[in-house]
Amino acid sequence: MQTDDLISLMSMDDRPVDTGWLRRATWLAAFAALAATAGLVLLTLGTRPDLASAWTTLPVIAKAAFGASIAAIALVLFQNSLRPGLKPARLLPFIALPLLAAAGWALLTLAQAPAEQWQALIFGRYWRGCLIAVPLYALLPLVVLLLLARRGAPVDRSLTGACAGLASAGLATIAYSLHCPDDTAPFLATWYTIATAIMTALGALILPRFLRW
């Protein structure tokens, strides 16, 4: 087949192309995945017993805001990474903002507390639960984002994978904050950050092999 034939064949398609679809689909998929993940948390773990009174308190809001800001930044990067010619890697440092904010808050809390309380502040009651639950619940949004990424054209597949991992951890953090009974800043900054790092590494390592095109 000659290149010219191929061009004739391709230029017969006069159906309009929607370049906004990918952006809309990303946000829609993220919201759907968040709703499904939250539903899954409620079904499997249930809410924390005091959610009705606690959901307006700073720690619960902070957990959700932490997850939401990571997810939002990662989703913008993710969506851009599916479009060749944009250089989303330059925006990657923005992800550090919520992480640094949480870390700063945690250090401030520790500095104001006596040293013998540090261990309780950091480990809380259920640090293992957080470390296992967040990555586990994040698998659902991760798969949703993987399916979406296959509809795009990721030229840097590791970056796309890392952003999908980050975003899925952020979404799972919001969902798990309905259950997580540990409310200290050092807990948030330690275990949620580690869980986020786990998902980012997982996404960057595993997803590229499913994203070849």
């Binding site: 370049t19 990918l22 479009r83 060749p84 010619g85 944009l86 795009g152």
Partner: peptide, 9 residues
């Protein structure tokens, strides 16, 4: 991949 083009780029 025409749908992946960003009109601003």
């Amino acid at each position: 991949s025409r749908h992946t083009y960003d009109a601003a780029s």
